[in-house]
Design a protein around this nucleic acid. Structure first.
Lengths: 110, 110
DNA sequence: CATTCATATGATAAAGTTATCATATATACT
DNA sequence: AGTATATATGATAACTTTATCATATGAATG
């Protein structure tokens, strides 16, 4: 399997805005305005990232009056997240202590 | 499950250097020098990212003479990658056409 | 068709990440 | 101990990504 797809896949989920949107839509479909309110994110920030998620096929949308309703590609996304759930506890503590990943110009403040 | 861990997990894999190292160690354990040669990456680049991968618990190391041998936490990592394999084909094409993810300052050159 | 509310888009400054360079530390061998 | 080879580390410049601002487009309704 193609290496680039893998990395893009992980990249899609590693972004806070996108990940929170996915988590939110995990429960139920929502309009852009609702997403903004629930997550307390700016509208254009949300729209830009929804565009990305839709381009990737993770969410889909339909117009409902003036609102555009976004919903999650549940079956596949949930299956992926559920599987990672099984493993992530093992790594959780160490991930959160990794300077490179937590970053903001590498590790601890001096 | 903690949201941050998730994102850090995805972030760890979304980086080219780290992902290639993981792919390489999927087959067999290797020293830093071997990894550098095989991937044609600079030594400090590899060391920095190995440190990250080890901090996260994805790889472990042991000294063997002057060489430090790194190996993959196979059971768990392989299980995760294998599961994603099952789904990624579905998204592959769209991921690779997503301007936000492919980026270099957003999408297509004008 | 003008207005209002909702969403999308382009450009770019700000923030974040990575590779690289210079150098330090580790290990083994003579 | 001195040298050679292997690996690690800190600082930072170069690069990449993101949020934000300004503005455009879409949809509905009087």
């Amino acid at each position: 399997m193609n290496e680039l797809s893998y990395r893009l896949f992980f990249k899609a989920f590693s972004n806070k805005t996108r990940f929170e949107i996915i988590r939110l839509l995990r429960r139920e479909q929502k309009s852009v305005t609702e997403i903004c309110k629930d997550l307390n994110f700016e509208q254009s920030r949300v729209s830009h990232n929804l565009k990305c998620l839709e381009a990737c096929g993770f969410v889909s949308s339909k117009w409902n009056g003036k609102n555009k309703i976004y919903s999650l590609d549940k079956k596949h996304i949930l299956s992926i997240l559920d599987n990672i759930d099984k493993h992530i506890e093992r790594y959780s503590k160490r991930l959160e202590s990794c300077g490179v990943l937590k970053n903001k110009s590498c590790g601890v403040i001096k």
